[in-house]
Amino acid sequence: METLTAETPRSLWSDRTVVISTAFAAVQTALCCLVWMVGATISQDSYGDTGIGIGMLVGTVVFLPVAGALVLAGALVEAFLFAVPLVWLGQRLTRRWGASTLLWVLAVPAAAAFVLAGLLAAGGAPFRPAWALSTGWAVLPAVAAHWHTTHGLSGSGTASRVGAALAAAITPLMLLVATADASGLLAGPYHAPELGARGYVGTWSEGGIRLHLEEGGRAVLTEVPYDDMAVPKSCTGRGSWQLRPAETDGRESVELDVPACDGISSWPWDVGGTTARPELFMTLGDPDTGELHILHKG
């Protein structure tokens, strides 16, 4: 029986190698998902929902085990289909063209990701996050598999050891930064646009709801919803509108006054979206469980 020494290469396709690669893939995926959730939460419009309802709590409790299972399954697929085959390819390229396997493990996904990011950018996706995400996702699990099969690069030169350590440290950081960039976390918390009175002039609509605001304060409403003494109603008619400046919630609002629709003035439309693509929204009923209406301009 052959004795395994520190110089004997371990099998690339051994269970332990796949498990190690899967573990690294799962950890980096979980961290990226967490960064994405935080970024998407603080950088997107909450539409006035500042609390955590019972529905969100129940959904979180149910979702976490499912998410964990999906992350683990995805990491296992990544290890089998990308990370370990990438090391195998790197070993073959080393035998054919020289250089170190680690260099190929870093270069091949970077080059492939560059092409993929270019294709995505042609379709409108941002190139930088696409390239960084595509590269970083495959590198760390592959470096972990390579490290394990070579016994921590035992017998390798200082350059190989330093290169592997830098790859193991930099690629997760690059992946997390790219995720933060793509999710909007780097842009900071969301702030509602300030349009000023002239910015609201025009037609806002959603489905059959139509709100036409004119200069001078005139308003024409078609099936605009509101509550009258807790009874849902809709308003079609002519009246007036005025801009309510941003207050503690940092949002401007449009207040309507239509004589034929008693009580509609109690249901202002708050501004949301962005300066380039503004929205007017209003929630009927409870802020957590009520019916949200979002009108788009144009």
Rank of each mutant, 00 (worst) to 15 (best):
H148C: 03
A26P: 04
H151D: 06
G239I: 01
V139L: 07
T5D: 01
T22K: 08
S266P: 02
T248M: 15
A117E: 08
I52A: 04
D262K: 13
A69T: 06
A230K: 15
G184T: 00
G196T: 05
G263P: 03
W267Q: 08
W137F: 14
S11P: 12
I42Q: 12
D15F: 11
W137E: 09
T101Y: 09
L70K: 06
D45R: 14
G48F: 00
L243A: 08
T275R: 14
T8S: 06
A180Y: 03
G55A: 11
V18D: 02
A113G: 10
L4P: 02
G184Q: 05
L295I: 12
S265V: 12
C33I: 11
F63T: 13
H212G: 01
A230G: 11
F63L: 12
A132H: 11
A165N: 15
S240E: 11
H212I: 00
G207Y: 13
W269Q: 06
S240D: 05
P109Q: 06
V224H: 02
G199R: 09
T29L: 15
F80R: 14
M174E: 14
T101N: 08
G272T: 05
A23W: 11
E255S: 10
G90T: 09
H191D: 12
P278D: 04
I209M: 09
E291V: 13
L173F: 13
T60W: 14
L102M: 11
A69S: 06
G74Q: 11
L76I: 14
G123D: 03
D228V: 11
Q91V: 00
L31R: 07
L120H: 00
G98Q: 07
V220S: 10
P109T: 01
V61N: 06
A187N: 09
S205E: 08
L140Q: 05
T22G: 02
D249F: 07
A99P: 01
M1C: 10
A117H: 14
T5E: 02
A164V: 13
A182G: 06
T171C: 12
A182L: 07
F80C: 13
A113H: 07
V105M: 07
A107Q: 10
P85G: 09
E255I: 15
F114V: 09
V77N: 10
H148D: 08
P278V: 09
F114A: 15
T179W: 07
R95Y: 06
F80L: 15
A164Q: 12
P287H: 01
S156H: 14
M282A: 07
T222E: 13
I54W: 15
S21Y: 04
G136W: 03
V139E: 06
E194Q: 15
R161E: 02
S234H: 06
V61R: 03
G239Y: 01
L70A: 11
I264C: 00
V35A: 10
S156N: 11
